[in-house]
């Protein structure tokens, strides 16, 4: 593994982070950057280590090895505070017996922020009308909004959100997407975790895909292109295989269906290759893959 060099523009950098709990390795040598003005999706199936990773980025969990750089400075030297880093964790992190307003006022007090800021984030998160209600009476979606409101209190440079869309209704999800895009447009950095690519694809610019605690893909979402392929059912598989390889393709048998998957050649080329090799094709079907399929393949959910 080569050393990870943080991008010059990175506002938050995970540098070879590892977290072990006894014999269990929750996060394994993970490195990536979070850039300002960009929404970064942190994607992976449940149990992939996303929450542990976010907690390490926020300084709540100590890495077994590796370090986190906030604005180029190690977290130990520059502990995050409300103006530098906001994080929505555990739904909202508020006592169920406290009202939303009380919860935010207490946090604002810790951060030495004015009370007017509390009213601003209450309005921003759509909780102004229920701010006097106890958090224990809130729905999951309302608690998510409260968690976001708390994270936004200091208008931080970096926003870390752990599965923020959980429990939000369609209107709430649209609100969330708009909020994240607006923050990115204002030059803020956003890292949002999710186990659903379809949900994140609408919002994120960069993605970091994790599987069993390791990064399996990091880069722009545009780079995560679905692969193409063609399913065929030939009368002479051996002869077709030779012809496909000669043409620069790759052929893989599917034992259960009796079909063959050809990669590297498109449908018309496969038909032409088969015609020249005098192989009859009883089926020729373009493989249908989506971004979600690619994600499932990366995360190992589809073998």
């Amino acid at each position: 593994m080569t050393a990870h060099l943080p991008a010059p523009s990175a506002v938050l950098t995970a540098e070879r982070l590892t977290k072990r709990y006894g014999r269990l390795t929750a996060v394994d040598d993970v490195s990536f950057d979070v850039r300002p003005g960009v929404v970064t999706g942190f994607l992976g199936p449940n149990g992939a280590g996303k929450t542990t990773m976010l907690a390490m980025l926020a300084g709540l969990v100590r890495p077994t090895s590796g370090r986190v750089l906030l604005g180029g400075t190690p977290l130990q030297k520059r502990p995050p505070e409300a103006r530098t880093l906001g994080m929505a964790i555990d739904s909202c992190g508020a006592h169920p017996g406290r009202s939303a307003r009380q919860h935010l006022r207490i946090l604002a007090g810790f951060a030495r922020l004015p009370r007017t800021r509390v009213e601003e984030v209450l309005a921003l998160s759509g909780l102004a009308e229920v701010a006097g209600r106890r958090v224990g009476t809130f729905s999951l979606g309302m608690r998510q909004r409260l968690g976001l409101a708390a994270a936004l209190l200091g208008d931080p440079e970096v926003l870390l959100l752990d599965e923020p869309a959980n429990g939000l209704d369609p209107e709430g999800i649209r609100w969330l997407r708009t909020l994240l895009r607006e923050r990115a447009e204002r030059g803020r950095a956003v890292l949002v975790s999710s186990h659903l690519l379809s949900e994140a694809a609408h919002t994120v610019d960069d993605i970091v895909v994790v599987r069993q605690g390791r990064v399996v893909h990091a880069g722009a979402i545009a780079d995560l292109t679905p692969s193409s392929g063609v399913w065929v059912r030939p009368d002479e598989p051996g002869r077709l295989a030779e012809a496909v390889v000669r043409a620069g393709g790759r052929i893989t048998p599917d034992v259960t269906s009796g079909r063959y998957l050809i990669d590297g050649l498109d449908g018309p080329t496969v038909a032409e290759v088969a015609r020249r090799a005098q192989v009859d094709l009883y089926e020729l079907t373009p493989q249908s893959t989506s971004l979600e399929d690619v994600f499932l393949e990366l995360t190992g959910a589809r073998s």
């Binding site: 505070e81 409300a82 964790i89 006592h95």
Partner: peptide, 19 residues
């Protein structure tokens, strides 16, 4: 212990910038 039971301990650390 209510701070840990209701997971309210972390937000204070996060916003205050203190250890």
């Amino acid at each position: 212990t209510a701070e840990y039971r209701h997971r309210t301990a972390a937000p204070a650390v996060l916003v205050s910038g203190r250890d």
